[in-house]
Computed example of a mutant assay.
Amino acid sequence: MFEILPMNAETFRRQTRRSTVIIALIFLALAMVLSTTAVALFGEPGGDNLRFNVGGVFVAVLLMAALMRGRFWNEAWMAPAVYGWRLKRSLMSVTNVMHQVTAAVEKQDPTAMKLLRFYHLGLSQMHELDANSSDHSQLTREMDQHKARMEALGLDTEQTRLNPAWLEAVKQQASH
């Protein structure tokens, strides 16, 4: 279950830039070392060693993927980037069923209304964290209208957690 956490946007951007630079530098070092090693072991002096250079880079990509998931993913310096990835992934899971969500919201389905409220809150935070203000005024209007509908029905508007059961319920309702 994903939960939207309060986060300072400036700090988030600074920390994610830092983790991106660290990952890029590690990748570059691995790619250079592995390519150089592959050419030294298997290449021909003065020959065409492109395939060994490319092979070294490919192995570096695989190694970085393994390091990201196995080692770096749980490191404190990666936490903001991981949070951002999880936020975007959670929003995408709602986006994938948005037509079903909006149809159920029109029928005042409480589960769909909670799901849409989570989506609005998450999207608003994502825009803030990414410093993307282009669509924010339109989103704010939609959020305010939806919040008012929820309040009129007596539903809790603080939907900061994405309950996977809500997604399943909306999918099930649409299939009937």
Rank of each mutant, 00 (worst) to 15 (best):
N8H: 15
V170P: 03
L91Q: 12
L139A: 04
A165Q: 11
R117I: 00
G56Y: 00
M126I: 02
L139M: 08
V39I: 05
K114W: 06
W77A: 15
K107R: 10
N96W: 11
M1E: 13
A29K: 04
Y119S: 09
R89K: 10
S90A: 10
Y83L: 12
A81F: 14
E10V: 11
P164N: 06
L121W: 07
E128P: 00
D144Y: 07
V54F: 02
M143D: 06
M150I: 01
T36Q: 06
L162M: 03
M126E: 12
E75A: 11
P6Y: 15
Q108F: 10
A174H: 06
R117A: 01
N96L: 11
W73Y: 11
H176I: 05
E75Y: 12
H146R: 02
H99G: 04
H120S: 01
Q125E: 03
A165G: 11
D135H: 07
R13S: 10
N53S: 08
T37N: 01
S93T: 12
A60S: 15
A103S: 08
A31C: 05
P6A: 14
T95Y: 13
R14F: 14
T102C: 09
H146F: 02
G56N: 00
D109F: 01
P164W: 05
Q172R: 10
F118I: 03
R161Y: 14
G84Q: 11
K147S: 03
P110N: 00
F2G: 08
V170C: 00
R51L: 04
G56Q: 00
R71H: 12
L121R: 05
D156G: 08
M126K: 11
A112L: 05
V170L: 03
A131L: 06
E151W: 03
V39L: 04
L129C: 04
L25G: 09
A65Y: 14
P110Q: 01
V21Q: 10
Q138R: 08
S124P: 01
E3D: 13
